[in-house]
Nucleic acid binder design. Structure first.
Length: 483
RNA sequence: GCGGGAGUAGCUCAAUGGUAGAGCGUCAGCCUUCCAAGCUGAAUGUUGCGAGUUCGAGUCUCGUCUCCCGCUCCA
């Protein structure tokens, strides 16, 4: 059972310390969120799962951690300086919004001369003269195009001033480019041969026009991106393999198949670099009536062709024999010693949002259970691997010093092996409920009998069943059940 | 950015223009042999922020910020 909606998760997150609104005491900052003690553990576990699965276990992928601020030319040749700046116009009448560069001349007259004259006037001038009809309502009352810069601008150098173009830099809008510009470095030092991948986890920044929906779309976010380099003829097959593999990975994180969906991007939707892109969608909005609209993007898996490596290389020339990229000092082509060919590898890019994955995991793990008294209890059925806390050690009664002492010792013994906490601020029922709500798989309870028989009760989060386990075997028992 | 809605304790919400409250949660003590028990006590608010009207503003007016829902973009 998934959470009824994102609001439920927001409320739980604030209440229990997964996610807080950022700079809250100063009134907050649009779409910024801070991760609390449980949130950071969960996020780290997600990232670790991804890294281990791709970089450590596959054996054909290297890790990388590149700079957030790069030379501005990186973003010039990646295409972001032009594509990440959209001129937008609004219709004052029907409130629709359009990209000015994608507007088309409508037919306004049967008279070819009139129509021709109309089409020869720049759209921007027509809009200014209130002579261009809104594609939606047809009324001629559009606002002038305003540029929306999706990239965060900053200046490099302590003495640089805001207007100094030479000091202008951007916070990266994606981590991918850091990988492409390091392709040669990694290739040479790791002695890899095609096919192989480079993986990176890191923050990216976009001045989204419309952020929102909690941590679903924020201006500062974290990506787990991997660029897999291969021969052009292998790209479609490898692309499909990753599409399949990532679905399985999401299953392994506890996300149910019924809340996941594939989406094939249409030709119009494809990014400037992509040949084919398949998104994996998650049911982030189960409360929406239209089933289609319940789903939104969790990750994208793109075939970027050889666009990026070529764009950053010095050899490609245009029709006139001029270098397409006169600024780069290197050529990112690959030489195959077996076939004596030199070419630009194709790239398959699975890009996952850390924050979105976290949200999907929380929503999917959210479960409500009715207890014997008919009250609703919240259980976060997180995979043990992802749970921020693995074990809570609880004294059944805290007015017995022997029980408390035993529980504290037990906690100390366990925490070197697994994340363990101790809690005695409440009756046993409340302590269990609290751990259920934050997804702790097991509670270990020390009672009066424990003092006699050196055994404790282990309670299962999902079934609420209890089992008596000897303290001497406890650590091994828990490790086994935690997987 | 535009349109619509909303901001009161950690959460959920009260409070005719007249002393800012409740429940839950949190914390401390007592009690307690297993699923948010009970008792006692405590902390927590410049009512988002700033002006204005008024003898007096949580309440009325204006500005501003933030959040939510749509429009564009994407992980």
């Amino acid at each position: 059972m998934a959470a009824p909606n994102i609001e439920t998760i927001v409320s739980l997150s604030k209440r229990r310390g997964f996610v807080f609104p950022a700079s809250d005491i100063y009134g907050g900052l649009g779409s910024s969120w801070d991760y609390g003690s449980l949130g950071v553990e969960l996020a780290n576990n997600v990232k670790q799962s991804w890294w281990r699965w791709l970089v450590h276990e596959r054996d054909d992928i290297e890790g990388l951690d590149s700079s957030i601020v790069q030379n501005r030319l990186v973003w010039k040749y990646s295409g972001h300086e032009t594509t990440f700046s959209d001129p937008l116009v609004d219709c004052r009448e029907c409130k629709s919004r359009f990209r000015a560069d994608k507007l088309e001349y409508p037919k306004i007259s049967d008279d070819t001369e009139t129509q021709k004259a109309f089409e020869n006037t720049p759209i921007e001038d027509l809009i200014k003269a209130k002579n261009f009809p809104c594609p939606n309502c047809g009324l001629k009352n559009l606002t002038e195009p305003r540029p929306f810069n999706l990239m965060f601008r900053t200046t490099v150098g302590a003495a640089a001033v805001e207007e100094d173009e030479s000091a202008l830099a951007y916070l990266r809008p994606e981590t991918a480019q850091g990988i492409f510009i390091n392709f040669k470095n990694v290739l040479d030092t790791s002695r890899r041969k095609l096919p192989f991948g480079i993986a990176q986890i890191g923050k990216a920044f976009r001045n989204e026009v419309t952020p929102g929906n909690f941590i679903f779309r924020t201006r500062e976010f974290e990506q787990m991106e991997m660029e897999y380099f291969c021969r052009a003829e292998d790209a479609p097959r490898i692309h499909q393999e990753f599409i399949d593999a990532f679905q399985v990975w999401f299953y392994s994180l506890g996300i149910s198949a019924e809340n996941l969906k594939l989406y094939e991007q249409t030709a119009e939707e494809l990014a400037h670099y992509a040949e084919r892109t398949v998104d994996i969608l998650y049911r982030f909005f189960p409360e929406r009536e239209d089933e289609e609209k319940q789903f939104d993007e969790l990750m994208g898996i793109a075939n970027r062709k050889d666009f990026d490596l070529k764009a950053h290389s010095k050899k490609p020339e245009d029709a006139a024999g001029k270098r397409v990229n006169p600024d780069t000092t290197d050529d990112l082509s690959y030489f195959d010693p077996q076939t004596n060919e030199r070419f630009y590898p194709y790239v398959i890019e699975p890009a996952v949002g850390v924050n979105r994955t976290l949200l999907a995991i929380l929503m999917d793990a959210y479960t409500e259970k009715i207890n014997d008294k008919g009250e609703t209890r919240v259980i976060l059925k997180l995979k043990p691997e992802l749970a921020p806390i693995k074990v809570a050690v609880l004294p059944l009664a805290k007015n017995k010093p022997e029980i408390v002492a035993m529980a504290r010792t037990l906690k100390k013994d366990l925490l070197t092996t697994m994340r363990t906490v101790y809690d005695d601020t409440g009756g046993i029922g409340k302590l269990y409920a609290r751990q259920d709500e934050i997804g702790t798989p097991f509670c270990v309870t020390v009672d009066h009998e424990s003092l006699e028989d050196n055994a404790v009760t282990v309670r299962d989060r999902d079934t609420w069943e209890q089992e008596r386990v000897a303290i001497s075997e406890l650590k091994e028992y828990l490790q086994k059940r935690l997987g």
